[in-house]
Design a protein around this nucleic acid. Structure first.
Lengths: 354, 354
DNA sequence: TCTCGCTACGCAAACGTTAGGCTAAACCAC
DNA sequence: GTGGTTTAGCCTAACGTTTGCGTAGCGAGA
């Protein structure tokens, strides 16, 4: 048992000449408790003079609330999740919560879940690592801790906080179409992942509803090498696309590398539009036109929904409605053949050029 | 007070027909307690059948230990800190700890400190955001929670976990010198920061001890724009350098942009070597030769030192001795004039080419 | 004067563990 | 058979809060 140094409630009570319960009431109930203003004042000043801080464990034990949230992310290497975490941490801090963060690499999922949820360390949990087959799905179902699936939805769960992936894909499609491209394709992420699936569907739908052919789609893992190979397949196909939407930053980088190695100039021969904006993309070999998503807001909204559930409100889905932002850089331009239709106006969503 | 659903110690005790304290002893003391193997077995099976998990708050209240560490990082946007956090989280998980993560943006430092330390939520804290004037320095001094300064040292604290920044800078210097450069310079970070200062000193020292002139040094903040301008100043100086060491990834990117805009070819006219490796640097306009640091190990070592302090051992400094790794890419080459000395061998540290 | 109803606080029992001390039985040697 | 030592497990008091309930004291109405 380590050193117990700090001031306790009873110390404040003694110093103020009242019973501990009165101190607790003054400190908790704000001004609803029946206590003389004079007494209240005395307690308050004594508490602050002694620099009293309530012990979180004792309080938590009594109230069954820890003021702590858990958060599971698939990887901190991915700046997308760093940004979501930032938003969540900031919002949690504002609300008086702290966040326990773990990388959910599935070798430790269950162990970490026990430690956080079953041992009562947290009041709620943000799961950003949901994917088909992840054991966390069963764990969530078998418990009654407040929870939220962030970014990656779990269909039917009613606990999803997500962004407008389809909109993002549509904006990408419209950007390419607006530039005059008609031969479009996409490098998609693993379609089993909710986000990847929605981006892919959104892109296809936007292209088709513009009257163009269903764009070719190649599925690839969310990293450079997979997209490099996927891009290779796209470029070898008979109907070589002039505009390609790539579903993730790392993929975009791999795709860019492949285009270069195929001797294609970007954007002169091939337009590339990516997803997941990052400051670094400004400095790529070809600065990447990309869609910037409201990631911080996603994280904050996840926390907000947890707070709602803790307030006793029923869980619900949240769509983060802040519009995805088209950031036009150098990787997109008109297609090589001059096929630009006369009256295809640039769409009217917000666009920022950096 | 929210729902109390889970199995408690007394439930296990009742089911096993023993006193709660016996259950506690069996579960805690492993095999040192005086309890019949038969009884122990019964308790163990009952506990696991009921899926008993001890309540962390109650246990923590009693033992004054939370199995939780706090961690303060300056920014999660910086992948360097993401990587340190990854290492720390992984090691903490292995040791049975969880990590509460916060971005220390100094508007909330004190509030977060109170919440974590003064309210007794954590057993120790990793401070990766130490910088002169940061209020956390006083808070640490005024408390007796176990703590570690990671990455950025606080001189004289005896609680530092840090990497061989000087070595990294020396390796960079030797690489440039080995290529034949004699006109060297560096873009340094804010010299008040421990890491930046050591990198700068290490570079200068290595250059001077190779018999070359003290290299020019320009100080700039750790971001693209500052380095862009710093690089401008370097390039305008009379003795324009042919080899430049840049102290941080973002700075390197800014420096690269500036070189390009000055019409200089990298590496033909100017060699650039950076710090802080990142997968993305492979795909920059000019893939960046850089020094890769053992960031994950740094994070893990910080946790290890916290564990040591908790075991009652006196705090001490740790140098992460894993050698910085030179990753040679395309941004460094021999200087434009053929001045390569005949017998300057490439230094013998580990080098990886990607 | 007696009750009633406030006001302002005290009392004590929790919350779920852990750990020091104790006791009863069993064992051993004499 | 007695006394001393183990062995195996129970009893109880914490850890620092919160909170339902109890109750003095007081003024007011009858």
């Amino acid at each position: 048992m380590s050193a117990r140094n700090s001031i306790r409630l009873v110390d404040v009570a003694r110093a103020a000449g009242v019973h501990p319960s009165t101190v607790s009431r003054v400190l908790r109930d704000s001004d609803r408790a029946a206590v003389r203003p004079e007494t209240r004042e005395r307690i308050l000043t004594v508490a602050s003079e002694l620099r009293y801080r309530p012990n979180a464990l004792a309080r938590g034990l009594k109230t069954a609330a820890t003021a702590t949230f858990g958060m599971l992310v698939p990887s901190l290497r991915n700046p997308v999740y760093s940004e979501i975490v930032r938003g969540a941490v900031a919002d949690a801090t504002r609300r008086g919560y702290v966040i326990v963060l773990t990388e959910d690499d599935s070798t430790v999922t269950e162990q970490v879940w026990d430690r956080l949820v079953e041992e009562g360390r947290i009041d709620g949990i943000v799961v950003a690592s949901a994917a088909p087959g992840n054991p966390v799905l069963e764990l969530v179902a078998g418990s009654r801790v407040p929870y939220v699936f962030a970014n990656r939805r779990v269909p039917g769960s009613g606990h999803n906080v997500y962004m407008r992936e389809e909109d993002a894909a549509r904006i990408a499609a419209e950007h390419l179409i607006g530039l005059g491209h008609t031969a479009l394709a996409q490098v998609a992420g693993p379609l089993g992942l909710d986000t990847a699936g929605r981006r892919a569907a959104g892109f296809s739908e936007a292209v088709v509803s513009a009257g163009l052919q269903l764009p070719a789609l190649v599925e690839a893992p969310f990293e450079e090498r997979g997209a490099y190979e996927a891009m290779g397949r796209l470029l070898q196909s008979r109907a070589r696309p002039t505009g390609v939407y790539v579903s993730n930053l790392n993929q975009a980088i791999g795709a860019l590398a492949r285009a270069r190695r195929s001797g294609l100039r970007v954007p002169e021969d091939l337009s590339l539009i990516g997803y997941d904006d990052d400051p670094l993309t400004d400095f790529l070999e070809v600065p990447l036109t990309a869609i910037r998503m409201p990631l911080g807001e996603l994280g904050a909204t996840a926390i907000e929904e947890l707070a709602r559930q803790i307030d006793g409100e029923p869980a619900r889905d949240h769509e983060v409605t802040t519009a995805p932002l088209l950031v036009v850089r150098a990787s997109t331009a008109a297609p090589p053949e001059e096929l630009i239709p006369a009256t295809t106006p640039e769409p009217s969503y917000a666009a920022q050029v950096t």
